[in-house]
């Protein structure tokens, strides 16, 4: 199945990338500004960063914090969101708290958290946790709320207890919505990861980026932006694959408008 139009569709993202790089290259050559390296210069700096053991350790430390923060957030937020969606009392209790936390940029909380917990892993992981939690709670909540009452009744008639209904009916029924929240959460984890390293400059990918900026190594700055961006795209694409597999039973209305897979 490789009709010309299908081929064009598959190649389109590639053309978009090449186009973007070309515009960058031309703009950079035209502006002739030291702080705006050409695309080729930036790309050439990538192997230097990835070849450097120190940088690699930093990036891996970032990813580890991100994974832990994201993982804990998902493990806490899904049950909380599901409970909120099925119990008015739980929702009434947590809603005001979340409404307060929701609009606050999580990075703005960092100075306080740093005062209490220092500038180490715990602080940064906590900020990632906070950033990821809200969309996952929100989508789990919405997903659980939307579960058809009659589906739960059918389960109850088969003898499922309230807890069994939550785990074996509400959870799978809300899964498409939950995973939508997780996908947003994953991107937010990347954003909060970099932000936290900007504020608590000690290690990590964000630290490399801002150190390079301080030292005027602009090609490294842009190379790091490309690396972080590529990490985001890869993580999202992998997640999207997993998501699509997990919910292939679901109606197409849950399909994402955007997908890199």
């Amino acid at each position: 199945m490789t009709s010309p139009s299908a081929l064009a569709r598959r190649a389109a993202p590639m053309f978009a990338c090449i186009g973007l790089l070309a515009v960058w290259q031309v703009a950079s050559l035209a502006l002739k500004n030291d702080s705006f390296p050409t695309a080729i210069e930036a790309i050439r700096a990538i192997p230097d960063i990835l070849g450097d053991k120190e940088s690699l350790i930093n990036i891996l430390a970032s990813l580890r914090r991100m994974a832990i923060g994201f993982g804990i957030a998902v493990l806490v937020s899904i049950p909380l969101g599901l409970l909120m969606g099925r119990s008015r009392a739980v929702a009434a209790f947590f809603n005001p708290l979340l409404m307060v936390i929701y609009p606050v940029p999580k990075a703005a909380l960092m100075p306080i958290i740093m005062l209490w917990l220092g500038v180490g892993d715990i602080t940064k992981t906590l900020v990632i946790f906070l950033g990821v939690s809200l969309p996952v709670i929100y989508h789990s909540f919405e997903g659980a709320k939307a579960v058809e009452e009659k589906m739960l009744w059918s389960g109850a008639a088969m003898g499922l207890s309230p807890l069994q209904r939550l785990v074996r009916i509400v959870l799978p029924a809300a899964l498409p919505e939950i995973l939508t929240g997780c996908r947003t959460g994953l991107v937010l984890a990347l954003i909060t990861m970099i932000t936290s390293e900007m504020i608590a400059r000690q290690s990590g990918a964000g630290n490399i980026l801002f150190n390079a900026l301080d030292m005027g190594q602009y090609d490294t700055v842009y190379a790091m932006i490309i690396i972080v961006g590529a990490m985001g795209i890869c993580l999202d694409a992998v997640f999207e694959r997993v998501r699509a597999r997990l919910v292939r039973w679901s109606e197409p209305q849950f399909d994402m408008p955007l997908s890199f897979s």
């Binding site: 058809e148 009659k150 589906m151 009744w153 059918s154 008639a157 009916i169 799978p172 029924a173 899964l175 919910v247 039973w249 679901s250 109606e251």
Partner: peptide, 14 residues
């Protein structure tokens, strides 16, 4: 007492 609903209420993931 086994219900059968107008909305079917099947488990879509099964």
């Amino acid at each position: 007492r086994g219900p059968v609903f107008q909305e079917f209420a099947l488990f879509p993931w099964k």
